[in-house]
């Protein structure tokens, strides 16, 4: 077995990895100083889970790629499955109607079932580009965002809120932008990587920056509660 090359690993560490880990650490610190009641908030818990899982798999993927080991399975498992489901659960926590929540739960089940069948039949491998699953989970997340926006403009429960001060609104908007912009990149990844490497690297910066933006927003969600506790000011209603 080859020895782990720390120098190669540190060579790979850039602003993206530092910021992602920074958000996870900040999120953990913020969460630890929240009140018991606030810690029980489903949106806060899911936001923390997302920033931690993203930091974990990004570092794991960097470790693998730095040691010249294929890391595609890390993205297929964590990004295309776990984080996608966490994002869907986050949007589910914003929904008010029981019927819509149930629909989202069914979507998650459906996604897992299809993923299982695709892997079982060999159509998709854990180490391939994962374009089918990326396409499928992005469509599901976009449907969930659609459900949220539909509830926003039709349900009376949303009438009293100011969407521009609501975490659910900004999180749904960020997720919508993130997944709608990145799913086309993910499904064309194989083609771009083999035929247009320059364009591939240029386009890959879009999901990278959207991931940073989403994680920043999720960390801010936790810190908005800290600010609310300390300074009695509510920048974002969670």
């Amino acid at each position: 077995m080859n020895q782990f090359r720390f120098d190669l690993f540190f060579e790979r560490i850039g602003y993206y990895q530092i910021l992602i880990v920074g958000f996870a650490v900040a999120g953990l610190i913020g969460y630890s100083i929240l009140s018991k009641e606030q810690k029980k908030n489903e949106s806060v818990r899911l936001s923390l889970a997302i920033v931690i899982v993203v930091a974990f798999y990004e570092i794991l993927a960097t470790v693998y790629s730095s040691q010249k080991i294929v890391n595609q399975w890390v993205y297929n498992l964590f990004n295309a499955h776990i984080v996608a489901i966490l994002f869907i659960l986050l949007i589910r926590s914003f929904l008010k109607r029981k019927r819509d929540k149930k629909m989202v739960s069914i979507m998650i089940m459906l996604f897992l079932l299809i993923s299982f069948i695709l892997h079982l039949t060999g159509i998709t491998q854990l180490n391939d580009e994962g374009e089918y699953l990326s396409f499928f989970n992005s469509v599901l997340i976009l449907c969930c965002c659609g459900l949220y926006f539909f509830e926003l403009i039709t349900l009376d429960e949303f009438l009293e809120i100011n969407p521009l001060k609501e975490f659910s609104f900004w999180a749904s908007t960020a997720i919508l932008f993130y997944f709608s912009s990145s799913f086309m990149i993910y499904i064309s990844m194989k083609y771009l990587y083999t035929n247009h490497l320059d364009i591939f690297f240029m386009l890959m910066s879009i999901p990278i920056h959207f991931t940073l933006l989403c994680n920043l927003l999720l960390t801010f969600c936790i810190f908005s509660l800290v600010i609310k506790n300390r300074f009695r000011k509510e920048f974002l209603h969670v």
């Binding site: 926006f149 926003l152 403009i153 949303f158 009438l159 969407p163 919508l176 932008f177 709608s180 912009s181």
Partner: peptide
């Protein structure tokens, strides 16, 4: 163009919500 369309969608949602309010 895609980003513009998405932005229009989100702004439209906010405007519709305001009108309902």
């Amino acid at each position: 163009f895609f980003a513009f369309l998405m932005s229009v969608f989100v702004v439209a949602m906010v405007v519709l919500h305001r009108q309902r309010q």
